[in-house]
Computed example of a mutant assay.
Amino acid sequence: MTNDLHIVMHVPKTGGQTLRDHFRTKLVFHSEFIHLGPFGVADAQARGIPAWEERSVEERAKARVILGHYASVFTKDLVPGPRVVKYCGVLRDPAARVVSHYNFNVEDKWVRAGNGVPEWSWWYRGQKRNFVCRWIKENFLKENTNDVADEQMFDDVTRLLSSFWLLGLTEDYETFSDMLCADVGVVATGGVRSNVAGEHYPRRAVVTPEIAEQVYRDHPVDKALYDWVRARVGTSKT
């Protein structure tokens, strides 16, 4: 077991919940494994555990894996001691990601609230252009995206990802998760997945050639970023 600190960037709908559920059973939750996202924050509050940034130096020093939508490049500053920081992250084909986002968002925010199911076309029109690149720049880099040109945003995000210890693709998810788990020193996930449309809630939309064409046209920086990661890490899938 190493003393490395693994910080996992969790772009929405890229398999982060699978890792969350795995690490919180294989490591000491809220101590060795910190989930900086709605689930982890709410669970800590329910247990009477202080917010991550308010915990003692001694407690924060125990962290080995930090994951969640709220993790950023500044999260490492809250972990004391000489640590090797290893950033990790998974990207997903933009069309597959936005369809997955629709399926989950509709179930989580609409159906479970007793509301009707919004049509795909209506829901899709409300999505931010180049959602993934904007999300990474705003949430992980903590930088503003207002008036940032597409080329600059692509350069900023690829510069960040070039520094990552481990990058992966959702279509080759087990390769990524196996390497991460091995480096952390816990057993692999064994292919178990969490929060999958069609298994854990209905799949109300699927990727069609028409949807893929539309997403790639509307989100060109996200498509370029995905292609960049794909070329960089390769895939065992054909």
Rank of each mutant, 00 (worst) to 15 (best):
R129W: 01
S31F: 01
Y124M: 03
Q17L: 03
D227N: 14
H10C: 09
G16S: 09
F23K: 04
V99G: 00
F164R: 09
V148H: 02
M1V: 11
L166H: 12
D227H: 10
V57K: 15
A71V: 15
K86S: 13
V215Y: 02
W52Y: 14
R112Y: 03
V184G: 12
F23L: 07
N139Y: 10
P50K: 11
V73I: 15
D155A: 15
A63G: 07
R60L: 07
H101Q: 15
S162D: 15
W135G: 06
L167I: 13
E143T: 11
L160T: 08
V184P: 10
P209L: 03
F74I: 02
V85D: 09
T158P: 01
V117D: 07
N115R: 15
E53A: 12
A197C: 13
G168Q: 03
V98G: 07
E210C: 00
N105E: 09
F104A: 04
G114R: 09
K76M: 08
C88T: 13
H101C: 00
R24A: 07
R47N: 06
L160K: 06
N195S: 13
G114T: 07
G81M: 04
F140L: 15
C88A: 15
G168E: 04
H35T: 05
D222F: 03
E143L: 15
P80K: 04
